[in-house]
Amino acid sequence: MIRHVVLFKFKSGVDWADPRAMGAERTAAQVGGEVPDLREWRYGRNVSTRDIAYDFLVEGLLDDMEAVDRYLVHPFHQQAIRQWKEISDWVVVDVEE
């Protein structure tokens, strides 16, 4: 099993009042129901106020790296990427469980 974790940090001038951020959050909420390779899907806003904190998290569980590869190119996931790319930078980690 692979745990796929992504942390998003808004670009300068973007916050949760921005309609693009709310739209990206809505799309992220739907990814788990749209991408069949995902066994689990979590997402959420950060509640910390620390300067080093990121703004949003998505986390999925997939069978193996081949499933991760399919997830990455899935059209709905690509739609989510386009939305988040416009408003944020992110870091990713894929770990074996």
Rank of each mutant, 00 (worst) to 15 (best):
G44W: 01
D64A: 14
S48M: 06
R82S: 14
P36E: 03
P75T: 04
P75M: 01
T49A: 14
R42N: 15
I81H: 01
R42V: 10
Y71L: 07
L38K: 03
K85Y: 03
T27F: 04
E34S: 09
H77S: 11
T49W: 12
M65S: 02
D55L: 05
G33H: 01
Y43G: 08
R39D: 05
M65A: 04
E86Y: 05
Q83K: 08
Y43C: 15
G60M: 03
I87A: 07
R45M: 07
G33P: 00
G32D: 14
K85P: 11
G60Y: 06
E59W: 01
I52L: 07
W41C: 06
P36A: 00
L61V: 12
I81L: 06
Q30N: 06
G33Q: 04
L61E: 12
A28Q: 10
A28C: 14
E40C: 04
R45D: 07
R70A: 05
L61T: 09
V68F: 14
L61G: 11
E40P: 03
I81Q: 04
L61S: 07
A53R: 11
V35M: 09
V68K: 12
V68D: 13
N46C: 13
A67L: 00
Y54S: 08
W41K: 03
V47A: 15
Q83M: 15
H77L: 09
L57E: 05
V31H: 06
V68P: 01
D64K: 07
D63Q: 04
V47H: 15
L62F: 01
R42K: 14
V58K: 11
E34H: 14
E66G: 10
A29H: 04
E66L: 00
D51Q: 09
D37N: 11
W84H: 13
D63I: 00
E40V: 07
A53T: 14
A80Y: 08
M65T: 13
I87R: 02
Q79N: 14
R26T: 12
H77W: 10
L38Y: 03
D69P: 00
R42L: 15
